[in-house]
Design a protein around this nucleic acid. Structure first.
Lengths: 200, 200
DNA sequence: GTCTATAGGGGGATAGAC
DNA sequence: GTCTATCCCCCTATAGAC
């Protein structure tokens, strides 16, 4: 066993793995997990199906790789996880507005989360945990705003967390179906202004 | 040509068609259009694949049948399309609350609408038109409420229409993934109370 | 109206050469 | 690390008997 440095389990060809993951994101975004095929992903990256399966030993493992990669990027983009409530909600809105220029990413989460409502879907547990993660990030933010008197009267932090996530997911679906009709950030901004006394 | 009575184009075995459509709803709800198979639908209704294809000549035609059937039911359930704004938003909320006891239906629309964001999906145009239909139903309701001074200051009827649909779709997805966490009607009710001066 | 049989394609995954 | 060849499964759809 070599020392667990950069030549560990996944040191074979990090670059190749990255290419495969990016192609997989495109294909899964367009056709979902069920509808997307490993052959098409392999074609896009210019290799054979068997070659791809050398790097990811099964379709579901490739999906795991995609989700892990996206989590790393998203967590980095979000910025601080420790700041005050106001900073977090502003970071959230900034992230949603940023997604307006990444249609493929919105497509990916839209189709995967819908597929993953089926209990036997390989990403079922992932999406449940993802909701818990986002809730666990935003609920304290709203609770902090409440403590500072920055929530409007009658607004419950727990409900606000649920509804913020709902309007985010819903506007994303709507944006994908009718790209011309609205901008995602506007709906999320309106929602945040409707539950807080802040301006965004 | 017979007179266009009950023995028209689709009079062969209306009951058989109905059974097939109901099985198709279950299968498409669980696995989506791409993931659902005609064989499984045929099995559920206790007939062969070829037998099924005698009633619906292709998979996409079966999907059309499902969507048409659901539209008929939904339009009937919604009630009056002509009443004042207040009645319409109340009908909308009532419909959403009613859906809480029809999980299969929520699953169906959730997965099909996500799949249908792909331009080549057989239900792509259907879901675009569906958004236009619902918008065309609810925008006049909010506009009427605005004219009666029943919208809160700063609320735009057009934006309210978009956000109402967004929160509805989003809370549905969330409900499917974590059924224990919330009730769909509550989020929609909260939204309606946040944009109007009415009580629900 | 329903069936069996079959065509014809695409899917994920493995074996083994290089 | 990448390939070709192959296995076996499931898919939609059609042909034709009953």
């Amino acid at each position: 066993m070599a020392t667990s440095g950069p030549r560990g389990q996944y040191a074979k060809t990090p670059q190749r793995r990255q290419e495969i993951l990016e192609a997989a994101i495109e294909v899964f975004a367009a056709s979902g997990y069920r509808g997307g095929s490993l052959r098409e992903i392999a074609d896009r990256v210019g290799m054979s199906l068997a070659g791809l399966l050398h790097h990811f030993s099964s379709k579901s493992e490739l999906l795991s790789g995609v989700l892990t990669l996206r989590d790393e990027v998203a967590i980095r983009d979000f910025g601080s996880m420790e700041g005050p409530g106001e900073e977090r909600v502003r970071n959230y809105l900034r992230l949603i507005i940023g997604n307006e220029s990444e249609r493929g990413l919105a497509e990916l989460y839209c189709i995967l989360s819908a597929e993953a409502t089926a209990p036997d879907h390989p990403a079922h547990d992932y999406f449940i945990q993802r909701y818990e993660f986002v809730s666990g990030l935003m609920y304290p933010a709203f609770a902090d705003l409440a403590a500072q008197g920055k929530l409007r009267p009658g607004v419950d932090p727990k409900q606000a967390t649920i509804d913020l996530i709902a309007i985010t997911d819903g506007i994303q679906l709507q944006w994908l179906l009718r790209p011309n009709v609205n901008q995602m950030g506007e709906s999320v901004r309106r929602y945040l202004e409707s539950v807080t006394t802040l301006e965004f």
